[in-house]
Every structure is written in structure tokens, then in C-alpha cells.
Amino acid sequence: MSLRSQLSDLLPSLLPTNPAEAIKGTELIRLVRLQLTGNYSDASLRYHFSIMSCDPGSPIAKVEKGQGYYRRSAPVPALSGAQELVSLSQGRLDDLNADRGAVDHALERVKKFRAIVHRFNEVNGKFPFEFREAFTSGSPLGNLWKFPEMALVDWQTGEDSEEEMSLDSRMLNLKQRLGLPPFRLTSARLRIQANLHSFREDFFQALSASMWTQGGELIYAVPIEDEALADGLRALNSAFGVGVSSFGIDIETLDDLPRAANILNAHPKETEALMERINFDRIAAPRHRQHIDWNAFETLRRESSEAARLIDWLCNCIDKGRAEALRGE
């Protein structure tokens, strides 16, 4: 039996499932040798650990920050990165075997995470606009490549409150003279968990849905602790500019949180407690463009009442000289 085949059989029982308990290479070599058939050098074993950790089908993963290896878990089943409607679950509904309870549970996770991202951006001075109608039952599957879950608007002026802020009329006038938008518009694609099987699909959907904005973000709930996965996302970011981040919320914590409606309507103290549970990690920073693709935005407006509503809101804020929160519901 080849060394790789032996390691594939041995490693699942030797590796911890928790990345925080990762085994260093030297200790893993010692444990493997106790059961390994054949005489292999430490260099050969380390090489196989490194190569296998980059293979999504192998049981071994290397921690993103720090040293050591842990057991790669299976990805969260379907809807880990979908909208609330089963019809657009990226073709992965079969993974749930038509289990209505599992579907409802997965959808509740998605709603909670979207509510968390919404509140996080409000607290940090950005105005989130949610797209929902684009993902209703019967909508084209291609909408996943055209619309983000959210558009994040950063007016970059004023410090009044998280619900509204004053706009600097002189700055608005200056940007209009320069042909620049008076805000930064970023699209956000939300996913529960990243894995080596689907991160490219996640990334390029985020890229495609950002073409009419000034930049894109791919935001995961669960920490990204697999080094090969983080490196893959950084490589895509380097080539295409979409930002990647994690909120550092594990599945168990997400399940324990209140329902989405409670998160959105939480009192300030409750919101503060929620924010303390977020361990935000910037994997790769986004590259923003100065200009919006107005032709693409206009095309989207003609196709979507939500996009039209977003434009109306932006215009009204500029006319009033105040940015007021508007949820896309």
C-alpha cells in the first residue's frame, strides 16, 4: 500500500477535529510511525502532510494561523450559502434528502447570519440594503450571479448615528463636479461556511454580482482555519479584487443565537453583546473602483424593482442631505 493510502487510512483517527487542538508535525510523525508500514523519512512524511492538506478530499488540513494539523470536516450540507428559498440552493437540495426539518434549520442559519451582517454594518456606519425579491421561488438561477444578498452603502461623511447621518453639502457638490458618486457602493455575498470544494463558486458569484458596484465582498460566518483554503481565497482576491472575511461564528454559536427578527430589533445592550461574539477576520481586503458602472446599474434597475428602490433611496438621501436607513424588505 502506498504511503498516501496508508496516511489516508491512519490520519482520521489521529487528528483532532478542533483546529485549536491541532497537532504539530513532529508529534503527528511520531504517532503515524507507530502504525505505519514501511520506512519513510521525516521529510517524506512532512511532504505528504503538506500536499494532502491542499487536497479537499483528504482528511488532513493545516491551520491557517499557527502551526499544526487537524481533521478536515465535511462541509455543512446544502443551503450553507444560499438564500431563504430552497429553489435557489445552488442545486444542492438533494443533499438534504428532502428533510423538511433540515431545510428549515439550514434556512434559519442563513437568516440569522444575514441579520448579523446587517446589524454589524449598521453599527459600523454603513447602510445595508437587502435583496430578497431577486431570490424568490421561480426566479432564474442566474440571479445568483447578478444580485448580491446585500448592497452596503458607505456615505463616508457624518457621524450622527447608525440610523441616519448628515451629508456634507460641499462634499456632495465637489464629488458631483468630479463625476464621482457621493458614496461607496459595495456588494456583499454571504455564505455560512467555506470549503475547498465550493470556495471558487462562492468567489466568482461574489465577483459577478459586484460588477455594477465599486467593489465586492465575500463574507463567511464560520472561521476560515484551513491554510490551503485561505491561500486559495487570497490568490483569487489578488487576481480579481473581491474582499474576503469571516465573522468567526461557529455553527453551534449561530444555532444558539436568537431568531433573525430578534437580532434586527435588538436593544442597544443586546446588540452590543452580539457584537462581542463576533471575531471578525479580514482574509483579504477588497479593491474598490472609483466609479460605478452606471450602464450595468441601469440595466439592473430595469430588471429589478429592488434595484430601482435602491436608486430611489440614494437619490432621496442626496436630495434631503441625510442618509436614512432603509431595509430591502
Rank of each mutant, 00 (worst) to 15 (best):
L3D: 01
L3N: 06
S5K: 10
D9T: 15
L11H: 11
L11Y: 14
L14E: 05
T17A: 14
T17S: 14
N18L: 06
P19F: 06
G25F: 00
G25R: 10
I29G: 06
R30Q: 14
L31T: 10
R33T: 14
Q35L: 11
Q35K: 11
S41E: 04
S41D: 02
D42H: 07
D42E: 13
I51F: 13
M52K: 04
C54V: 02
C54E: 09
P56K: 00
K65H: 13
G66K: 09
G66V: 11
G68I: 03
A74Y: 05
A78M: 13
G81W: 04
E84Q: 13
D94H: 11
D95S: 11
L96F: 15
A98L: 10
D99L: 07
D99S: 15
V103L: 12
D104S: 05
E108Q: 14
K112M: 02
R114V: 01
H118P: 12
V123A: 14
G125A: 06
R132K: 13
A134H: 00
T136Y: 08
S139C: 01
N143F: 00
P148Q: 03
W155I: 00
G158N: 02
E159W: 10
S161M: 08
E162N: 14
E163T: 15
M165E: 07
S166Q: 15
D168H: 06
D168S: 09
S169N: 14
R170W: 10
L172R: 04
L172F: 03
L174M: 11
L178K: 15
T186E: 14
A188V: 05
I192C: 08
Q193E: 15
L196Q: 06
H197I: 15
F199G: 02
E201K: 10
S208Q: 04
S208E: 04
M211Y: 13
W212G: 01
G216C: 05
I224H: 07
E225Q: 10
D226M: 06
A230C: 08
A230M: 02
G232C: 01
L233Q: 05
N237S: 13
G241W: 09
V242N: 07
I251K: 02
I251A: 01
T253K: 12
L254E: 04
A261H: 11
A266F: 04
H267S: 12
K269T: 15
E270V: 04
A273M: 09
R277V: 01
N279I: 08
N279M: 10
D281F: 14
I283Q: 09
I283G: 03
A284E: 11
R287T: 13
I292D: 01
N295V: 07
A296C: 11
S305P: 12
R309M: 15
D312K: 11
C317K: 03
K320T: 10
R322N: 07
A323P: 00
A323M: 00
A325H: 10
A325P: 01
